[in-house]
């Protein structure tokens, strides 16, 4: 019972951290760049929203499998391919939850506009300096939204995990898969507990996000 919860939380946390680190520069670039092919990149980032998880899982399975170039590299480095490992789940989750983190960050950076950065430049702040001292703090509500959405979305992941993670207890068996197993085995009581827990969790996530956003938004206006 506790194994899947622990694995899920760990997976969601690691995924969120990776996505914040990767997503912030990408969101910044999407918000500020003026190159014409920018929206193409934005579309690729948004693709997981519409792509069926099984399709994504299938391609990931192939891309990460032992016969693929990536699989050969990971095999050479770590002795095994990524599918059916926790690391494989992290890779899948990062791609699966990417739009839910990057989109709010991009929106937040866009909402700042040019002016605060121009002001920072006239006050002797270099571009890097203004990014950290002006853009990031002003985009805080967007970063928070992205983190919460990324975390929650990873917790609810099912299709991709089933395709690339299988169902290994203690390693890749996450909550949603555990619920599926309990239902298959007609263990309704267990399924109820986990499902109700996720229901409450989801409600709290949305509620706290709305409250936080309102609070931060007011402070930054």
């Amino acid at each position: 019972m506790w194994d899947p919860i622990w694995i899920t939380v760990k997976l969601a946390f690691i995924t969120t951290v990776i996505l914040l680190v990767l997503g912030t520069p990408v969101g910044w670039w999407l918000a500020r760049s003026k190159v014409w092919w920018k929206e193409g990149v934005a579309a690729i980032v948004a693709l997981p929203i519409v792509l069926p998880p099984t399709v994504m899982g299938f391609y990931l399975l192939i891309a990460l499998g032992p016969d693929s170039p990536i699989g050969q590299i990971t095999t050479a480095l770590f002795g095994r391919a990524l599918p059916f490992t926790f690391a494989g789940l992290v890779v899948g989750s990062v791609i699966y939850s990417m739009p839910f983190v990057i989109q709010p960050i991009r929106n937040a950076f866009e909402a700042i506009g040019d002016r605060p950065l121009e002001v920072a430049a006239t006050l002797r702040a270099s571009r890097l300096d203004s990014f950290f001292s002006v853009a990031l703090p002003m985009a805080r509500p967007g970063l928070l939204t992205g983190a919460v959405l990324g975390f929650a979305h990873t917790v609810g992941e099912f299709g991709v995990i089933l395709m690339i993670g299988g169902n290994i207890p203690g390693e890749t068996k996450v909550l949603s898969v555990a619920i599926y197993d309990h239902v298959e085995a007609l263990e309704w009581g267990q399924a109820h507990i986990l499902s109700a827990g996720l229901l409450v969790f989801s409600f709290l996530v949305i509620l706290s996000m709305m409250i936080l956003e309102k609070k931060l938004g007011r402070r930054l206006r």
Partner: peptide, 10 residues
């Protein structure tokens, strides 16, 4: 000095 003061809100 910009037309609107453009103070940093944070």
């Amino acid at each position: 000095v910009f037309q609107d003061a453009s103070l940093f809100p944070h």
